[in-house]
Design a protein around this nucleic acid. Structure first.
Lengths: 207, 207, 207, 207
DNA sequence: TATGAATGAGCATTCATTCAT
DNA sequence: TATGAATGAATGCTCATTCAT
């Protein structure tokens, strides 16, 4: 967003400026296309300056991603954990997920769309991982919904992943400029959420 | 298929040989890893020779892409048009879509995931466009399903796009290497299709 | 020697021009200090052009070295193999060795003075290796000299290596500009050879 | 020796700490691998701090070098001046010289192998110069040996330089990693010294 | 139709060094 | 005395592309 160059920021904010610029740039290309030099040129610093704040290209990308996941988590977790019915909590979570993507397209692209070299140090099962946390919550609410007969008896992991895939797909389509003319964003999101909720709801559901 | 180099082909077949090799190379590497030089080395011709058949790298890629869409169409259209119930036709189509993506991951990526400058010559509404054709078919079967009460009364475009988004999402997740450990591919696909079918099916459906 | 740039050479002579320039440049620095770009600038071609003739920096250095060893071999072998007495053959060989170094200082520096990453593909015992060939000849003549009592009974390898070390040392000192003022080159070489010959000669030698 | 970082030393000892660390780093890497940044990191100070004690990289290196010469001198001089026979003193000196080089390979390289711009401030004839001192001593003992008939009547300078060249050559070969497999270091050194001593000894020498 | 020779631009990263504090 | 922030230049190498033949 802020296209501002140097000098208009305080002492240590270069790090933030780098992160913001990097996110925007990563969002419009692949990992390989992203170049430290272009980033440097964009923020008006020497390429070397970046290395004072991040050890290398991969580190920079990782930091950008981590930020995103944390924000995404903040946006969704409380909706998934609120006391309403599991089905309604899930519906609210789905919508919030897509909305986050739509409102932070570059964050989302970088963190979830950009293909990048696998990070061997990454512990995908760490409880601290925001993605893991969201997934665990979704799974929990599904289980709860099944227990209270709001939701059909379904395999928890298959269903949770299926739902995630669906909202990820919609987010992706809404974010990436495509030739195909999509319907109105809000109506589409509403319909999508309803479709998925109907897909898991028990048949006698009031849904 | 034929890994044979030059000399074992007729006069003008170099074009085909290039396309075949390019397709294979996309299938085993990322977009950026693909290089005209490596392609040339692989087919045993000079790099220059490629430029006699394709104006540049992008042109070559576009040709590969177009092929992909046609293959995707071939893989799906007959399933969507077969005489079975609309719901079953749609289910079969969904699964075929994902399977195609999984089996041709780099083609799918190039064609549907890769962000690239809009092609001004592209007519997104052309009936000849394979994507358009698939969408139209899906919409038709949905309408038919609604008419025969297999499917709930839903907005056709919202639902068709919602379904497409869902399968696109699953395809994407299955294709792109991610840290998150997904469930078994076939079971996931099965569950996904069932979820979506359940989401659109009429409540008294036998589904 | 030839500082001539491009255009004054024929079709494929770029390779030779590269080799010559590379030798001169390697001779005045370490492997790391040598830069492909500087070489390119020096010969007036793009850096890329070098890679059309040599796969990389190391390959280029290896070629330069190999050339040198072959020339060195040519300069010495016939002297070591001539029919004169072993002692005289050795004396002639020693002097020719040093003279080669003095007359081709850059060749010598690159091949025998420059510290460089070990080449794992290098077979130091290959009979085709000119250095090995010279060493083997020296060893042979020593053996012969011992048999005919011109030379004291000495360990062949220790002596051959010791002699080589000595002439290498003198060559080095004569080549590298040093602050210390050496004696007249020819007299020094003469004295050096005599010292070494006296060192190995049998006591009753007429030497 | 002390690997301890900062804070465990007095006020102005940073200079010493830098010199010590620099010496150690030279000993385990090549000239180019040495970097001011790595040095700074190693001693736990900022890179800038080094510049408060040495004007630049070269200055730092020169200081390390000078130290080296002084150590070399210390290691040899007393051997050359001891009361034993001139021949034995020279033999001991030769061996000590090579041994010093082998034990301080990077110091030797930097001081005697590395080609670098001539230092205009350097007075090669200054009596304080440790190299000059060693040379003078060698020359003296040769003269003495000739006087007492232990040594053949030889030109003093030619012979001294010839001997120096020989030990320098052996030191060089032993220091620089080469593809050629040399004999056992100690035996080679022994043989080398004996060869040179035999080369200068009078024929009736008991050697 | 096909090539060999060549190029300019680009890459991530490291370096010695400087400067304001 | 010491630092943190920053830089310009340099590195080996790969790329898509062009051009004369």
């Amino acid at each position: 967003m802020s296209a501002g160059g140097r000098k208009d920021r305080g002492k240590d904010d270069l790090r933030l400026e780098i992160l913001n610029a990097a996110r925007d740039m990563f969002a419009t290309g692949t990992f390989e296309e992203f170049s430290m030099r272009k980033l440097a040129a964009r923020i008006g610093y020497s390429a070397t300056a970046i290395y004072l704040h991040f050890t290398d290209k991969r580190d920079l990308l990782n930091c950008v991603c981590q930020e995103t996941f944390e924000e995404l988590s903040r946006a969704i977790v409380h909706l998934l954990t609120r006391t309403a019915s599991p089905l309604e909590a899930i519906r609210a979570g789905l919508k919030a997920y897509v909305q986050f993507g739509v409102e932070h397209p570059n964050h989302y692209k970088v963190a979830l769309l950009l293909e990048r070299p696998r990070n061997p140090d990454y512990d995908s099962s760490a409880a601290t991982n925001p993605g893991v946390r969201i997934y665990a919550l979704l799974r929990e609410r599904l289980a709860e919904g099944i227990r209270c007969a709001e939701i059909r008896p379904l395999d928890l992991d298959l269903t949770a992943q299926s739902i995630w895939a669906s909202v990820h797909g919609l987010t992706t389509l809404l974010i990436i400029e495509r030739d195909f003319p999509l319907e109105n964003r809000d109506r589409l999101l509403e319909a999508h959420a309803s479709l998925l909720i109907a897909g898991v709801a028990a048949k006698n559901s009031t849904e």
